[in-house]
């Protein structure tokens, strides 16, 4: 028998470990994913199509896209500004700022929703003032946007900061020494350098913005056709025992997740970006 190299296990051990890992993943990751699609199509394609083209479902889809269309660009602007300030300059309190940016990651989604209720709800700090001016944030779309922006707050910045830290300031200094102004430097040099990392951050941010449940659930009020996002619509249908409907809408979200994973992997392989456990 051939000896295996000192730095590896025997082929048998390898196969056993690989199979064990795959079995675990199949059980905990693959099976739920497959279940979504099978449950959605359990009674054929007709009920599925009906469920996703139902006016309430369409309203939920529209609202979800709208929320993402607002919160993702806001996140991009913040991410670019924060990473420029943090990576291109040295100033005291930088670590504190970094910690603060990560704060939303360590807060339960439910608590994230709760703080906006405490601030803007009818009983909240600003509630009386808002209702006196006819403004509604909680149980309305603005509240959902706020909660989503809170939840996705660190997503773009967290991708850009390590990337820009690694790239340093040489390129920007070179551009300035060649006579470029600040905007030209940012637009022609910095942005192209970070575009794939930015896209990666946008991808993750978008997935979370469209899929967020806990925080949105607390502030939305679950008004059908008005403040129901897709994940909330899934919950309502499920609680009404309309399982096919719930899984049909869920399968759209699962498809979004799969597209996200594919694009994310392509970016990782092609541009050597790595995510780490930074979500």
């Amino acid at each position: 028998m051939r000896q295996h190299a000192p730095g590896t296990e025997s082929r048998t051990t390898q196969v056993v470990l690989i199979l064990l890992a795959l079995a675990f993943l199949a059980f905990f990751l693959v099976m739920p994913l497959v279940a979504v699609f099978i449950e959605a199509l359990k009674q054929g394609i007709e009920p599925f199509l009906e469920a996703v083209s139902n006016p309430d479902a369409l309203a939920a889809i529209r609202l979800t896209l709208f929320i993402a269309a607002i919160s993702v660009p806001l996140n991009v602007v913040f991410g670019l500004a924060a990473s420029w300030a943090i990576t291109k300059f040295s100033f005291p309190g930088k670590n504190l700022l970094l910690t603060m940016i990560d704060l939303p990651l360590s807060v339960s989604p439910v608590v994230s929703g709760l703080v906006f209720v405490l601030l803007f709800g009818a009983q909240g700090l600003l509630g009386p003032w808002l209702s006196a001016h006819g403004l509604k944030i909680i149980f309305a779309v603005p509240g959902i946007v706020l909660a989503t922006v809170f939840i996705t707050f660190p997503f773009v910045a967290r991708e850009l900061i390590p990337l820009m830290m690694e790239q340093g300031k040489d390129d920007e200094e070179a551009a300035l020494s060649l006579g470029a102004n600040g905007w030209q430097t940012f637009w022609h040099v910095t942005l192209p350098n970070i575009r794939w990392g930015l896209l990666y951050g946008v991808l993750l941010c978008n997935a979370r913005a469209m899929g967020e449940f806990g925080a949105v659930s607390v502030v939305s009020g679950h008004i059908r056709g008005e403040t129901n996002t897709m994940p909330l619509h899934v919950e309502i249908l499920y609680n009404e025992y309309d399982f096919v409907g719930a899984f049909a809408v869920a399968s759209l979200l699962a498809a979004l997740a799969l597209v996200t994973l594919v694009l994310k992997s392509v970016l990782e392989w092609r541009f050597d970006l790595h995510s780490g456990a930074r979500h």
Binding site: S177, V189, P192
Partner: peptide, 13 residues
């Protein structure tokens, strides 16, 4: 001033 950086700082894209 023309400045040549140690790692060149060429714009990769």
């Amino acid at each position: 001033v023309g400045f040549v950086f140690q790692q060149y700082a060429l714009f990769r894209h």
